[in-house]
Amino acid sequence: MTESASQDGTTLIRPEIEAGSLKATEQVDVERKLSIVERISNINSVRKLTVLLVLIVLWEAYTKLAEVEELLFPPFSATLITLWDTIQTGELFEKIWITVAILVQGYVAGMVLGAVLLVFAVMSRVGSDFLSTMTAMFQPLPAISLLPLAILWFDLGAPSLIFVTIHSVLWAVALSTHVGFMSVSMTQRMVGQNYGLRGVSYIAKILVPAAFGSILTGMKIGWAFAWRTIIGAELVFGAQSGKGGLGWMIYEKGDNLETTYVFAALFTVIVIGLLVENFLFRNVEMWTINKWGMQR
């Protein structure tokens, strides 16, 4: 080939080549399915489940072989047995119910209050300034630090817990939604006004869907804060009063050194958290922003 190359200034000129017919298709797999092992190990859930099993086996083996005291770190099997016991006696569901009922009341009340504040914020500049000042003030304040005051105002009981839960949800949701509303594009706003939408229907039909990504983020953060606050509040309550839900169960059993019960309660807290985040919110996400192609 090179002997027939020639030089034109600095460009090497070589003879042109043209292939006849190409027959690769018969000799090579253009596309082939991967082997079963490869495909199975590509499934995320299978790999994660394996990791989980390995961790559990390690935990069980460690506590058994090193003969760790059950009081300090119970083996997995003991935890599981206790969990089963509390399920059978109904104790666990009773605790879950107490906690979840307060959480739901506080969450819903917080969302409603947030919505009212947001309507004012969208309608007027004073409302907007009020909301941003309040969120800037209260968002960094851990809701749980209001618990002593709540106890003072509402006494020991559900209302105090609901009060702090509201506080933990309200500002996170309001802040995120407000920011989301403000960043709705001018084009979409004008489209809404163009079609005669005003006031509440403008908020509901243009701003809320357009800012749904931020709203959902706010709701997720609000949930995370609320869940942490309620468990924390029940712990603090436990220290003071001596009755309550899951958080109190953790506190009480820890105090009595019934460690397997603490672990069983922690398990339950994790499971509820996983259900809400991976089931509830994931589904809402799939049905809204994913479907609308708006996820970031």
């Binding site: 027939s4 020639s6 034109d8 090497l12 000129i13």
Partner: peptide
Amino acid sequence: MVGTAANSATVPDID
């Protein structure tokens, strides 16, 4: 076959 350009020159083996 040789290039068509006027000032072309055949080159020896190059890598």
